[in-house]
Design a protein around this nucleic acid. Structure first.
Lengths: 254, 254
DNA sequence: AATTTGGATAATATCGATTTTATTGCGGCG
DNA sequence: CGCCGCAATAAAATCGATATTATCCAAATT
């Protein structure tokens, strides 16, 4: 699975731990670096991505910058207009609503399949990821700033482990795109403080249902988890309404 | 909807041709051209995409070729390996199975939402697209070779119209990627002859259910449609069981 | 005052060439 | 015989520069 959004080399047989993230080519290096900056907001939504500026900052050629940016288009983190260059993909409340809806559908599909068909190794991965995340969450309460990045990575890995038993590569690719885009919104409201206790509870609910192979319960817990995350961001009032997209019901499919 | 996968000319969302939408930049031109060749098999799965060859053939610079190819990576029609360049994304029966599954999930989600929430304009679009497709199908029986490309376009437009009432842009993006990839498989087995009568019947079933606002029936009909398409391709025995197009000798087309 | 026009400026798109990395073929050596 | 290393070659990645296109602003026109 050497997909664009998934970093690094063949990313470990068992699906977890994108780990070292070495970048062998300088395009990839730039790609990863830029993605990071977009996800954490260093490059704010809608901002122009000037070739010359990026070239200078990264010490590479404009051609290389262009290619890195083009790869980010595939991840829907960057948009390109006619002859007007690149910019960071815009964000809006309407877009978040839509994104949340889409992600809920896909993540839940994958989770259900994963819970139903995950093998022993899958179980082990889930337990490991859950436990590891728990450790970091404890540390996070003591020293938030110190372990924040670690938490974010392990949070992502926990979610990845949960669905790693699902058999559809295509769904996984779609999930990854949606997950990363959600991540960008989540970090908008992330206060760099300890995550609310609720998050831990929600993870626990998903985890326990998954391990006891109760697909429906796991899916329901995942829905709650995703929906609450949406509400947190929404009520932070950091987003423009615009985007034109009609409001979507983010709740269950009818 | 200025999406990467959505090709230009006949977007035809409301029946009237919107704008020529010609490819203004030479990267886009190359992108569209290459995509076409990949979809119709002129560039077979797994084949190496040599920069120099493409540069010469398209009369552009390697840099431009690279960027067009990078955009195709976002559509999952091309894969890039480390320092080994680009190749056409491999096909396999396993991949088709997976792809069909994923597409069924997403296309059906979109269809259900569309049928439930499509407005009058949506209905008009569906009726128009269905009727237009019907006309072409009649002509196709008389002179297959002549109208084949038209049929393919209108078939895609019919499916697009069906889900055009769905409100999720994100789901639509995912659907588009999956649809195009399916298209590549379908054309593997397309005989350039008239499409089986069954296809017409299936389209009719979907169409009628959609217009009478019966979401469940429409989804069921869509499932049948997608699944049969899968079986047709599968029984054509044109695909390797699993991944990896064996190293085809470098396609050297003039 | 608003719109248009022309030229200067800035940014992007594209090119041709160089550097870096993979692949291939061929002798030597175990 | 078959494996290993080493040149020679081919290809990809990257660069620096040129060609195109958009943007801005001021002067001119109505």
């Amino acid at each position: 699975m050497d997909q664009s959004l998934f970093t690094g080399p063949p990313a470990v047989i068992n699906g977890i731990t994108p780990a070292p993230e070495r970048a062998r080519t300088s395009i990839e290096e730039t790609y990863l670096s830029l993605r990071q900056e977009i996800l954490n907001g260093a490059l704010p939504q809608g901002s122009k991505l000037h070739l010359e500026g990026l070239r200078a900052r990264h010490g590479i050629s404009t051609t290389t910058v262009r290619e890195a940016l083009t790869r980010l288009i595939g991840d829907r983190l960057v948009v390109a207009e006619g002859q007007k260059g690149f910019r960071v993909a815009p964000m809006s409340l309407a877009d978040l609503e839509d994104l949340t809806y889409a992600r809920m559908q896909i993540e839940c599909l994958a989770l259900a399949d994963s819970v139903r068909h995950g093998d022993d190794e899958w179980e082990v991965r889930v337990v490991a990821a859950y436990h590891r995340l728990g450790i970091t969450e404890d540390r996070l309460r003591a020293a938030p700033a110190l372990h924040f990045d670690t938490w974010e990575r392990q949070n992502m890995e926990f979610h990845a482990a949960l669905v790693s038993g699902a058999r559809s590569q295509w769904l996984e690719r779609m999930r990854m795109i949606l997950f990363h885009n959600s991540e960008r919104y989540r970090r908008l409201s992330a206060t760099k403080g300890p995550p609310p206790l609720k998050v831990r509870d929600e993870h626990t609910a998903i985890f326990e249902a998954a391990i006891r192979r109760d697909a429906e319960a796991a899916v329901e817990a995942m829905r709650v988890h995703i929906e609450r995350a949406f509400n947190v961001i929404k009520s932070a009032h950091l987003l423009p309404e615009s985007g034109g997209g009609a409001a979507l019901p983010t709740s269950r499919n009818a």
